[in-house]
Design a protein around this nucleic acid. Structure first.
Length: 728
DNA sequence: CGAAAGGCTCTTTTT
DNA sequence: GAGCCTTTCG
């Protein structure tokens, strides 16, 4: 298969320019990932580069998997020795191999956000700081920000400008100590400590620089400083570095992604070749135009002119419903209608939302109507209590110094080890300058005389029993394959009986068994290796979806997760002020622009048809709120929009109290021979300026209008008062 | 020690 | 509305 066939001029240039730095600025649907994949294939197949000497970094594990599959087709063989994965996965691998030099135990555990928060809380406690005054989340975010800029606790202490900064510095230092004691690295450490390793050990860096002749990074707009630093290090020798990104799809600034990386690239590599990919192969003209108008409202952007040869397509539908339940109902029924009419298949449709919380109501509607769907669960599965418990056991077996895991399961199932006992254990361990694990082992020892212990023999005995259990588990883990050990563990620890005795025990046990299924993928590895790989996999993987890719189901997904995907029909729900843009982003112009990019990402996922849906009223945080339509709707010209109608549930489809409690719905919404203005029209208001009529509803002999103004946001107006004039 | 109940806060996005 | 934390009681 010729890897250059079917590429347009720009794509071809991007693939064939293999010498020196290359910056590819690629619009949505322009074949960005395809370019990277073909570039790798080109290097291997045409240029004869050993895959071992190529690194390709993707944003998610899923993207990495897909690229592997596509590559196999292109190169017509497996390319196993290619370095392909996320920054985190690649760094973890490097640190396991080389970290010893920097004092990193190769068996380190990777701490996720929950683990991090535990440690922060513990750090606050030991520093006598009030977690109410210093919110652990905020502290963690500040620490993470520091790490993304490669700042150590010492750097923070020096640079602190406020009391909060100063506290953060102190907590950061303590937190780092706790991580070390637990022989754990957090997500940020994986990156930062790799960079430091390379900085401090030039010979190690040289080895990797020598190895990687070609380095490629996808989704470059979402990289942060430490990630950029890392690839600059690795590509330092050959300088064959190719980055691909789209500033308009940068949606991870909250994870400290920094657009300056793209801007600085041309400064850091003045000889960089810049390639623009502006032809869109995915969407209809109207969708592309809709998206372009939306994104043009952003100030902070690098201009790009997207175009397509695709057909004109349908207008984007603007729908208002009364509540979020009706919103969900509209979506399901519309999908059913599309399917019945043969216009789409279920698997062709996606429902996108800003927050995960929104998925519940949507899900309920799909269940009620019996329409198959798949929820892209994100990390959900691995956040379940029983799953975290089992993983904690496994982590503890691999690394008994992991204090977060120890604390989590030491008394699950109940072994009579309460807070008091744990305090005693911690104190005793500290007084002996040994770890809690070592302390437990001493208590488990046969020749233990309770005389020297500062606590009761009963406590010593229960703790000792647990110590023996741990010891036994560790011993067995070295003898059995992962699956056998898994079974041994859940039985021997008493976890199985414990969980089955709980409420919803069967369901939870099913989840445990699902985890076991994951473990089966590691059955054939040597015992220690199997456990290690498994734990690394679950620590760095977030997408448990795609198990049944082929099944015909509607996809429910967050806007963030949707990046990089495409669907025939896209419903964006909750297109409301407060949700999109999210209220946490509303007081900052830059954040608003990121929210707009998020909407842009959503719209550009669609091939054929977009629905923008919002609810007049919805329950948020347990409270009923009335939300205006999203200001972003005002960025879209009227001629690209159809509808703007208020959708109404057919009678008694829900039969719920909600439907009953609904005030009398307006009789004739959109088709009403509305006096002068109808939805979709462009109007001018004396005070608010120009805008688009989002909806128009008859109220007696007046009309209630919702107008999205480009300057003033979304306003509800009465036709008789508003003195609107139509614009063309 | 542990279960249960009550009270509090704060809700984004993910490797 | 949930999850987390603290308090209370057996």
């Amino acid at each position: 298969m010729d890897v250059l066939v079917d590429l347009n001029a720009g794509q071809r240039e991007a693939v064939e320019t293999i010498e020196g730095p290359v910056l590819i600025l690629a619009g949505p649907g322009s074949g960005k990932t395809r370019v990277i994949t073909h570039r790798v294939a080109y290097l291997i197949k045409t240029c004869g580069i050993n895959p071992h000497r190529i690194m390709a970094v993707t944003f998610t594990n899923k993207a990495a998997r897909e690229m592997t599959e596509r590559l196999q087709v292109l190169v017509s063989r497996a390319v196993g020795n290619l370095t392909l994965g996320t920054f985190h996965a690649i760094c973890a691998r490097i640190l396991r191999r080389e970290g010893k030099a920097a004092g990193i135990n190769p068996g380190f555990i990777i701490y996720d956000e929950d683990d991090q928060l535990e440690l922060i809380k513990r750090a606050l406690q030991t520093l006598n700081l009030d977690p109410k005054k210093f919110v652990p989340r905020a502290i963690l975010s500040a620490i993470s920000a520091s790490k993304s800029r490669m700042l150590t606790p010492q750097d923070c202490a020096l640079g602190s400008r406020s009391y909060f900064d100063e506290v953060v510095g102190r907590v950061y230092e303590r937190y780092q100590q706790l991580l070390n004691e637990s022989q754990a690295l957090d997500f940020d450490d994986l990156l930062m400590r790799t960079v430091f390793l390379f900085r401090n050990y030039p010979d190690i860096l040289a080895k990797y620089q020598e190895r990687y002749i070609h380095v490629m990074v996808d989704e470059f707009q979402d990289t942060n400083l430490v990630q950029y630093e890392l690839i600059k290090q690795i590509a330092g020798k050959y300088r064959n570095i190719c980055v691909v990104g789209d500033p308009d799809q940068s949606i991870y600034s909250w994870r400290f992604a920094d657009l300056r990386n793209i801007l600085n690239f041309e400064k850091d590599f003045p000889d960089a070749k810049v390639v623009y990919l502006e032809q869109n192969y995915r969407s209809t003209q109207r969708i592309l135009e809709t998206a372009s108008h939306l994104i043009k409202a952003n100030q902070q952007r690098k201009y790009k002119e997207l175009w397509t040869n695709n057909e004109l397509g349908e207008r984007t539908s603007l729908i208002e419903t009364y509540t979020e339940q009706e919103e969900a109902q509209f979506v399901v029924q519309e999908i059913q209608r599309l399917v019945d009419a043969g216009e789409a298949k279920l698997g062709d449709c996606a429902v996108m939302y800003r927050t995960n919380a929104q998925s519940r109501v949507i899900e309920e509607a799909f269940v009620r109507y019996g329409v198959p769907y798949k929820l892209v669960a994100g990390t959900r599965f691995y956040e379940r209590r029983e799953i975290k418990d089992i993983i904690s056991y496994l982590r503890l077996v691999q690394n008994p110094y992991d204090s977060v895991s120890l604390m989590r399961i030491v008394n699950v199932p109940g072994r009579g080890i309460g807070q008091h006992s744990l305090d005693e254990l911690a104190n005793w361990a500290a007084s002996q300058s040994i770890s809690q694990y070592q302390a437990l082992q001493r208590l488990a020892g046969p020749d233990l005389e309770s005389a020297h212990l500062p606590f009761s023999s009963r406590i010593a005995k229960t703790l000792g029993n647990f110590g023996s259990l741990l010891k036994e588990l560790i011993a067995q883990s070295l003898e059995m394959n992962l699956v056998d050990f898994f079974d041994f563990l859940v039985t021997r620890s008493g976890y199985k009986d414990f969980i089955l005795g709980e409420e919803n025990g069967d369901e939870r046990w099913d989840n445990v068994m699902e985890l076991r299924t994951v473990a089966e993928g590691y059955r054939d590895l040597a015992p220690a290796e199997g456990l290690g790989s498994f734990l690394e996999g679950v620590a760095l993987v977030s997408d448990v979806d795609d198990l049944k890719e082929t099944v015909d189901k509607v996809t429910l997904i967050t806007l963030h997760q949707a990046k990089g995907l495409e669907f025939g029909v896209v419903f964006i729900v909750g297109a409301e002020e407060g949700l999109l843009p999210h209220f946490r982003s509303m007081d900052d112009a830059l954040q608003i622009e990121e929210e707009r990019r998020l909407a842009y990402v959503g719209i550009t996922r669609a091939k054929r048809k977009v629905y923008l849906v919002h609810a007049f009223r919805r329950n948020l945080m347990g409270r009923s709120t009335v939300n205006k339509a999203s200001r972003f709707l005002g960025d879209i010209p009227a001629n690209l929009i159809s509808g703007g109608e208020v959708w109404q549930a057919a009678e008694s489809t829900l039969g719920s109290d909600i439907a009953m409690a609904k005030p009398k719905a307006p009789e004739v919404p959109s088709q009403a021979p509305s006096p002068e203005v109808k939805s979709g029209d462009r109007v001018r208001h004396a005070q608010f300026g120009e805008g688009v009529v989002v909806s128009s509803v008859s109220r007696g002999d007046d009309s209630e209008l919702v107008v999205a103004f480009s300057g003033a946001g979304v306003k509800k107006l009465l036709l008789s008062f508003a003195k609107l004039e139509k614009v063309n």
